[in-house]
């Protein structure tokens, strides 16, 4: 059966790109609608990517060879994460660890930063060190939530508490009283903010701040490299929303409707798409239209201060609930 995984390894990334660009289009459309604007057509990201691939790719003289290689690496690392997560509601193609996925989530933004640093432009250097500060920031709440959940799995006596498969058994809502539900919702709220931070969406988009540092990390990128970064951004949206789906809403719809075979597959993937869509809208489209940008110094305080305290509070509430029940 290993050749099926090979086919899946080849097919899934293409599906992920299409889905990601579609989601970005819907995101821009919903954001425009929220500002009572007509907003671009849903397929606008596809036109943007096509245009970027037609334009020339300028390589600055001062930049090193890494500048040209990093867009490739960031897209490849995102493809790999997709294989390890239950994409389209199906079971993950390759079986991996939660710690592995957490570390692999660093790779795309690290590749972007290395590319930005080696492009030689001061704008990109400022942008990339802000991106690293952002990365150092959002890891703390993210890691606390994920390790708490695997610890909860461990206390339930699951054999491999860190593997993704055991996460998809709906650990978050298992055995929770009303108090626990409140704690879990608090964790969901923190997770949505962390997702917005990881995608460097408006409240946290210090790294690609258009006005202050002309274009941030991608100041020197153009044409096909910029197209790859555009695709990487779309893929990251898919990956992160799937991560939240794995953590908080892993249950499929087909079992509920009781249909088997191919229909179950389609029903699951549609339900998955709806979940991802709703998560995206609530996590970053709402934020994009309502909140303005944080300063770099406020960034780390926001993550390590308020968001971390919120997640610890949520964990504490759930802990009390587990003790009571």
């Amino acid at each position: 059966m290993w050749w099926i995984t090979l086919i899946e390894i080849a097919v899934f990334p293409i599906v992920a790109i299409l889905l990601g660009l579609l989601l970005l289009g819907i995101d821009r459309k919903v954001a425009a609608r929220m500002q009572r604007r007509v907003g671009p057509p849903i397929l606008q990201p596809f036109y943007d990517v096509r245009k970027l691939f037609i334009k020339d790719t300028v390589i600055p003289k001062k930049s090193t060879w890494i500048f040209d290689f990093m867009p490739l690496l960031s897209v490849v690392s995102l493809f790999i994460i997709i294989l390890y997560l239950p994409f389209m509601g199906l079971s993950p193609v390759l079986h991996g660890d939660m710690v592995f996925i957490l570390y692999l989530l660093i790779l795309p933004s690290l590749a972007k930063v290395l590319g930005g640093i080696s492009s030689g432009s001061p704008y990109a250097a400022v942008g990339s060190q802000r991106e690293i500060t952002n990365m150092m920031g959002y890891e703390f709440p993210l890691v606390t939530i994920i390790f708490f959940m695997s610890w909860k799995l461990f206390s339930f006596g699951v054999a491999k508490p860190f593997s993704v498969a055991s996460f998809t058994s709906g650990v978050m809502w298992a055995g929770l009283g009303t108090l626990g539900i409140a704690g879990a919702l608090l964790l969901l709220f923190v997770m949505l903010l962390v997702i917005a931070g990881e995608l460097s969406r408006p409240p946290f988009d210090v790294s690609s701040a258009g006005e202050e540092i002309a274009g941030g990390i991608t100041a020197e990128y153009s044409g096909r490299n910029l197209g790859l970064f555009y695709i990487a951004d779309a893929l990251k949206l898919i990956v992160l929303t799937t991560l939240v789906v794995v953590l908080f809403f892993p249950f499929g719809i087909s079992g509920f409707l009781g249909i088997g075979g191919w229909f179950a597959l389609i029903a699951d993937s549609i339900f998955y798409f709806i979940k991802v869509l709703l998560l995206m809208i609530f996590s970053e489209t709402v934020l994009k239209t309502s909140v303005s940008r944080l300063k770099v110094t406020q960034l780390v305080n926001a993550y390590w201060g308020s968001l971390l305290m919120l997640s610890l509070l949520g964990i504490f509430i759930i802990f009390i609930d587990m003790v009571l029940s």
Binding site: K62, T64, I66, V99, L102, I106, L110, V113, L114, I117, S118, G120, A125, S128, Q129, I132, T133, M135, M136, E139, F140, V143
Partner: peptide, 21 residues
């Protein structure tokens, strides 16, 4: 894990200063 992420960022700083130009 947090300290290993911070180690990564200090190594990126070294990469920036050595492998440029």
């Amino acid at each position: 894990m947090i300290s290993s992420i911070i180690i990564l960022s200090s190594l990126v700083k070294v990469f920036y200063s050595i492998f440029n130009g």
